[in-house]
Design a protein around this nucleic acid. Structure first.
Length: 668
DNA sequence: GCGGGTTCATAATA
DNA sequence: CTATTATGAACCCG
């Protein structure tokens, strides 16, 4: 993994000497820091904290056999022998009276489908039904009108449920009659339970939804009240009281490239009316001035604001789309023209209401940078990893004259000192090509308690005390999905100069919740009891597992009898504290700043290399993250009890500039 | 590994 | 209650 990692980057000749990067081979790690000319304001890694008294040198975890010490976070009720996913509790009542699946029943016209349905209704069907067994936790008022927090909560809860549904679907037999629309199923459950917000239709701003917010499913737009049509591109509502069709105005449109829209000027959108398309039953026809078309015509005359949502191809999922809320527009004019098919189509020219910073222009710029990275303003280096990662990372400064962070060696993974030995060998699997989520005999599945950690696209399903990935002794090399954190990041990053927080990390790509970002690379520090640890104390580039981290809810919650409140956290199970320094060598993770309202979290992952199991710290996105949004995680608070006497609680305390309403005011 | 066609779905609406 | 509508999403194929 670390083999062959090149040294550093070669800067242009014009650089100030004190800031020049040296090209150094990995092996000759030297803590060479060219003059600290740029001061300390790097908001990156925190200084160290004292160890708990019980600290001892790292040793391996996770005996493979027997019961993993992994607490069970969900209701899945696994016992120590790790049962497959199909053994989801089947005894859960279909809460709230109504079985979710009743909505799935088809018209009984053709009786052939009935047989299949009955046949598979006892296993995963019941597992899916169990997912609907949770408290809505949304009041009537909140259902009608939202705010930022509600919008984020609803979206996070939806996606947690969607990933859980996907996980169950993934574990079914291949080629079985499968319902793959996990987003629809999750959405159906959310709507049935009333977990939504801004359900009251409105013209203009939707409380809690901001320009630039991204969505990956039309269902998400419905759930937070941006656009309530599941497929149609034009949403509308009656003007005051009157409910005659002619009195409805358009409230939002989705421009997703299905028609011949014009999308050059970011402040202007020429949108095609709906209808008239050919389908299996009928030929293309003239569009009619009804429904959405009529509503847009009314909006032209009433001059009301119309929300615009733009759809783009999702480069990580070429078959699906990512939607961006682009702000408020007004219909300026309309006309009829001949479409490709020769039939009449309506056209509507919408113009952005002044004073809004649209999101579309940013997306267009990124498209340009992607084609030609040197076109990025403020570019210092096209790839600060020097090829160590499969995806380049740009170094950019649009803020001041600083030519880059202090010297470090780029490495893509964490490195353990030789002295860390494995006590017990790790057991790999025998899966020939790839581990299948439904295979209960796979030891790697068993180590994960029967829950495959990732869905098919590589997104994390839920946080767990520990995740066990396949290692180097597993023969499933080529296609195994249980190696997400080992296959390198796919996100196109840039390291950029922030205002006041040193260097930071952000992405050109829109990122889904649960996406693997990177691991925390660097050198694992050994701390010998009794001896100092100056290497830790004065190091701003350190990751600690043994801090106090604010708990938060990310997993899908289900009620289950007898498991009352033990399910508070998604706490980790790390047998021995781990400290990683990225001061001398590290990866993009060392540039992630602290935030009290972070959009990224970390997750311990274990896998075996050369018969030794190692712990890695992997970062995943907490929610959907729009392009160019700074990536941040919670640095946590040091434990102040080291059992060895004096410790200054304020040591390393820094003023926090995260700007969150929940800001604690400082961080370490 | 795309782009286009096919199939299976949906929520809101009339 | 049912049919209709629609810029969906996943999958299949060449």
């Amino acid at each position: 993994m670390e083999g062959g990692v090149a040294g550093n980057t070669v800067p242009p000749n014009s650089f100030d000497k004190s800031q020049v990067y040296d090209v150094k081979p990995l092996r000759s790690l030297l803590p060479v820091f060219p003059g600290a000319t740029n001061g300390p304001p790097f908001g990156t890694a925190p200084p160290n904290s004292p160890f708990p008294s019980g600290f001892s040198p790292f040793f391996p975890f996770s005996p493979p056999q027997g019961s993993p010490s992994t607490p069970v976070l969900n209701q899945n009720h696994f016992n120590s022998t790790a049962v497959p996913i199909r053994s989801f509790r089947a005894d859960l009542p279909t809460s709230n009276g109504k079985n979710v699946h009743s909505s799935r029943k088809r018209k009984l016209a053709g009786s052939s489908s009935v047989k299949k349905k009955v046949k598979r209704s006892n296993e995963s069907e019941l597992a899916l039904a169990a997912l609907a067994n949770f408290k809505p936790g949304i009041s009537v008022v909140e259902k009608d009108d939202g705010n930022r927090e509600l919008v984020e909560t609803v979206l996070m809860r939806f996606d947690a449920l969607r990933r859980k549904v996907s996980q169950i679907e993934d574990s079914k037999e291949p080629h079985s009659e499968v319902f793959k629309h996990a987003n629809l199923k999750a959405g159906n459950i959310m709507l049935t339970k009333g977990v939504r917000t801004n359900g009251k239709k409105r013209i203009g701003v939707v409380p809690g939804v901001e320009i630039g917010d991204i969505f990956f499913f039309r269902m998400e737009l419905i759930l937070v009240g941006v656009h309530s049509q599941s497929m149609a591109g034009i949403d509308f509502m009656p003007m005051k009281g009157s409910d005659i069709e002619g009195e409805r105005v358009a409230v939002s449109i989705v421009s997703a490239g299905g028609y011949e829209d014009d999308a050059e000027d970011p402040d202007v959108l020429v949108y095609t009316g709906q209808g008239g398309n050919a389908n299996a039953d009928k030929e293309a026809s003239d569009q009619k001035l009804v429904r959405g078309n009529l509503a847009l015509e009314r909006s032209l005359h009433r001059a009301n604001e119309v929300r615009v949502i733009r759809g783009f191809k999702d480069i990580f999922h070429p078959t699906s789309k990512v939607y961006v809320y682009d702000g408020l527009f007004k219909v300026q004019e309309s006309w009829i023209e001949k479409g490709k098919t020769g039939c009449n189509i309506f056209k509507y020219k919408l113009v952005r209401t002044p004073g809004q910073t649209g999101a579309f222009s940013t997306w267009k710029s990124i498209k340009k940078w992607r084609a030609d990275p040197s076109s990025r303003d403020g570019l210092i280096l096209p790839d600060l990893t020097s090829g160590a990662e499969s995806t380049p990372v740009s170094l950019v400064n649009e803020v001041d004259d600083e030519k880059g962070p202090a010297y470090f060696t780029y490495v893509s993974t964490v490195k353990y000192p030789k002295s860390f030995k494995l006590v017990q060998p790790s057991v790999g699997c025998n899966c020939s090509d790839a581990c299948h989520p439904g295979n209960s005999n796979c030891p790697c599945n068993q180590k994960n308690g029967g829950d495959f950690p990732y869905i098919a696209n590589g997104n994390l399903v839920c946080r767990k005390p520990m995740i066990y990935e396949c290692g180097s002794s597993c023969p499933c090399f080529r296609n195994c999905k249980n190696r997400v954190s080992q296959t390198g990041f796919k996100v196109r990053y840039e390291v950029f100069k922030t205002r006041g927080k040193g260097w930071g990390l952000r992405s050109w790509d829109p990122i889904r919740a649960g996406t693997f970002l990177c691991e925390y690379a660097g050198e694992v520090l050994e701390k010998v009891e009794g001896q100092g640890g100056e290497d830790v104390e004065n190091n701003d580039y350190v990751f600690h597992t043994n801090r106090v981290y604010e708990s938060f809810k990310w997993n899908h919650e289900t009620e289950s009898a007898g498991e009352a409140s033990s399910n508070t956290g998604e706490a980790f199970d790390i047998p021995t504290p781990l400290i990683i320094s990225s001061k001398n060598s590290g990866n993009v993770a060392r540039f992630m700043n602290h935030s009290c309202s972070p959009n990224v979290f970390w997750q311990p992952i274990m896998y075996e290399q050369n018969n030794e199991a190692f712990l890695h710290i992997a970062f995943f996105t907490k929610k959907h993250i729009p392009p160019m949004t700074e990536l941040t995680y919670d640095y946590g608070t040091p434990l102040h009890t080291d059992g060895m006497g004096s410790y200054n609680a304020d040591h390393g305390k820094k003023k926090c500039l995260c700007g969150s309403p929940k800001c604690r005011g400082y961080f370490y």
